[in-house]
Amino acid sequence: MGMGRGSAIMVLLLCLFVIESEMVHAATYRVGGAGGWTFNTVGWPKGKHFRAGDRLVFKYSPGAHNVAVVNKSGYAGCKTQRGSKVYHSGKDQITLVRGMNYFICSFVGHCQFGMKIAIYAP
């Protein structure tokens, strides 16, 4: 049995409400806090509750650091894989996707000194 016009409109309104609710609840986080994206930020995500759609702001000195979006093995091995998106503006804004999100600085040695974060976003 099909939906009447009124039911279809109610479903559409409900969908719009859900989409708007997701957008309203998105948060913005400055990675590393006041110190920004730098060494030893690996523990920065602890105690925070992220969601898909939240925005991360990476503040750093361009030319001194960057932000590479990597997968789990890239994170563990501090390696940027072919095809990885690499940001280098010093004021990068990246929206979290659902699931695990991995970020490293791909400058030699920086990731090994804790310039990496892993965030789960349900």
Rank of each mutant, 00 (worst) to 15 (best):
L16A: 01
F17R: 02
V18S: 08
V18A: 08
V18C: 04
E20F: 12
E20Y: 09
E20H: 09
E20W: 10
E20D: 03
E22Q: 07
E22R: 13
E22L: 11
E22V: 01
M23E: 08
M23P: 00
V24L: 12
H25P: 00
A26S: 07
A27M: 07
A27Y: 03
T28L: 01
T28K: 01
T28Q: 02
T28W: 00
T28E: 04
Y29T: 05
Y29H: 12
V31W: 13
V31G: 10
G32R: 06
G33H: 10
G33F: 15
A34E: 12
A34G: 09
A34Q: 13
G35P: 04
G35A: 09
G36F: 15
T38C: 14
F39Y: 15
F39M: 13
N40H: 14
N40T: 15
N40K: 11
N40M: 11
N40C: 09
T41R: 10
T41Q: 07
G43L: 13
G43I: 09
G43V: 14
W44M: 08
W44K: 05
W44Q: 13
K46R: 15
G47C: 13
K48C: 10
K48D: 09
H49E: 15
F50R: 03
R51W: 10
R51P: 00
R51S: 13
A52Y: 07
A52P: 02
A52I: 04
A52H: 04
G53T: 11
G53W: 14
G53M: 08
G53I: 04
G53L: 12
G53D: 09
D54S: 07
D54W: 02
D54T: 06
D54M: 03
D54R: 02
L56C: 10
V57F: 08
F58A: 00
F58T: 01
K59N: 13
K59A: 11
K59H: 15
S61F: 13
S61I: 15
P62I: 01
P62G: 00
P62A: 00
G63P: 10
G63Y: 10
G63C: 06
G63A: 03
A64K: 11
A64R: 14
H65S: 03
H65R: 03
H65M: 03
N66H: 09
N66G: 06
N66S: 11
N66V: 10
N66Q: 14
V67W: 08
V67R: 11
A68H: 07
V69S: 12
V70L: 08
K72F: 10
S73H: 14
G74K: 04
G74E: 04
Y75D: 01
Y75K: 04
Y75N: 01
Y75M: 05
A76S: 12
G77C: 06
G77M: 11
G77I: 02
G77S: 12
C78E: 06
K79V: 05
K79I: 03
K79W: 08
T80K: 08
T80N: 03
Q81F: 07
Q81G: 07
Q81H: 09
Q81I: 02
G83R: 03
S84F: 11
S84Q: 07
K85D: 08
K85N: 05
K85T: 12
Y87I: 05
H88Y: 03
